[in-house]
Design a protein around this nucleic acid. Sequence first.
DNA 1: TCGCCTCGAGTTCC
DNA 2: CTCGAGGCGA
Length: 702
Amino acid sequence: MGDAQTEDEAAAELERLAREIARHNRLYHGEDAPEISDADYDALVRRNAALERDFPHLVREDSPSRQVGAAPEGPLAKVAHALPMLSLDNAFADEEVAEFVARVRRFLKLSEDEEVALTAEPKIDGLSCSLRYEKGVLVLAATRGDGSVGEDVTPNARTIADIPERLRGEAPAVFEIRGEVYMSKADFAALNARQAEAGGKIFANPRNAAAGSLRQKDPAITAARPLRFYAHGWGEATAVPGDTQLAVMRSIEAWGVPVSADLERFTDLGPLLAFYRGIEAKRADLGFDIDGVVYKVDRLDWQRRLGQVARAPRWALAHKFPAERAETILEAIDIQVGRTGKLTPVARLTPVSVGGVTVTNATLHNADEIARLGVRVGDRVLIQRAGDVIPQVLENLTPGADRAPYIFPARCPQCDSEAVREEGEVDIRCTGGLICPAQRVERLRHFVSRHALDIEGLGIVHIESFFRDGLLQSPADIFRLTKAQLLGRERWAEVSAANLIAAIDSKRRPPLDRFLYALGIRHVGEVTARDLARRYRSWAGLEAMVDAALAVRAGLQPALGEDERKFALRRDKAVAAAIETPNIGPEVGNAILDFFEETHNREVLQDLFAAGVAPQDVVWETKASPVSGKTLVFTGSLETLSRDEAKAQAEKLGAKVAGSVSAKTDLVIAGPGAGSKLKKAQDLGVAVIDEAAWNALVAEAG
DNA sequence: TCGCCTCGAGTTCC
DNA sequence: CTCGAGGCGA
């Protein structure tokens, strides 16, 4: 581009710059994934300004100079799912499928002659979506999101031919159809050809194309994309048309919503696995990508009893096809530093296509893994995408080659602190703690992450840049950020700054469990944070317990003649007892106390409170039942129920299930053969009922 | 003490 | 998603 250009050329370039800069703004602010460096971006902005100076009459309505750092293209609206959208447990080997059936039998305590019927259907590789029909009319379409909260894509879903506006025939008052939005292989190829011609985005595979097409702000774009849908299940429903999976799916089909053409029902493992092999054999000939076969327990009453574990139902299994593999060269091994200081070696690979995406990185986990694989830089390696997502190095194809062995660094590459491997641990950690910039940044990132405080618009790019400039050092600094500070920075304008400040403000009163999780206490993840929040309800309650437990721990002294190991055991028991929370034992308990013992951490907390952060007491939405909020203990053998099922029932009714009887126990359910726990309950005067009484209670409450 | 199950913490690519 | 490891029942 020369300076002596014609007006036509200048106009064309200004138009191009407007588009380019708008795109980079969007990438930077909206998606947190800039493609170009700040310097390159500035060059574009400067070029635009220079042209506008030379040709003032050509300044465009949508000129970047009028709106640098413009509002990000707003995200799609969030919607909470009435019932969470679960993921599925995976299996690869036939034995795992057999084990799944065995597990179902065990859980339900089925007798040998009762058969477990399973439905089977191919698992299409698409994007999970929930369609809510009220009185047979489509009112809401939402993506899966994190399972609890998805994105509202209703206008887009309405443009998909497979998704009817009204269900045919009689439909319940409320029925949420769940299924998969996908794109056929042929449509995907045609779309990419069109995109290439128009200079648009090329998609890596049909699933990405489907996801990108559905999550559009402008439904007209979605309408132009050849999306399809098929149903594989349902969510909230005021009535369910049938008492088996198969019957309900047939009803959904009768309502005019496509279901898989290959949906079948099996009662024996042999034919079921033959079905899987059959689908695998015709995989390449199918018009769409599939990544396995899904099995579901056919009887709905059994599905209900089986319930779910964490995020997956116990009554369904995805039998995946073997992952695709590829060979490539290990070009380098880099070391990443995580929030806990863990040094993770990452393999940098010559880019290679595996199952539709280009892989350039793969984790090597730790030093042991590198040794096990025997890999050295320069080796040819076999990689696969585990579960078709995460790339992993499987094997060194050139072992023993004459190359320098990889030497794991003895110091942190980020802060040069010593890196040590603790007794009995696999991981090597940077000892720099908060001196280490990598650890500080990672901790900040964890603090604002989706399952922690969930501050939108504060991604890793911004955290790193704020951290570099000293704007953000500790979590409390986030809550002291001002709009003026942001406006003083490159590429922050009124709207984007106001958005971020508003996002931060909206998280000043986080629920106690999220706040606890955000602190990043070792061993305290989402579930443990929730256990603690549920047990102590308020920050004050938790802190009181911690202080008491710290005092107990500090006050313990080895008894005369007691060896170190015995003392440690006694101390650990005391710690677990003081924390008084199910699933928290010595290891986690000590980690929690260690966190609070550290003066610096107390300061960080005080600082947060001073900055106006106030964790909210957790109000557990306990369904009204005789046992909600109570602590139960099951003991002895149960006859109609397995322990897992009993526990699941209790939790559904808002009760906690503990392992041993204490003064905190409200109710003991004792089966035959109950021993010491039953005796203790009687000694403490805790109420005791038998299994029949428990079943009656569950039936009444349910 | 063993074995099972669940959780935590790390990871990729778009 | 996978791995290692913590917690708990048997």
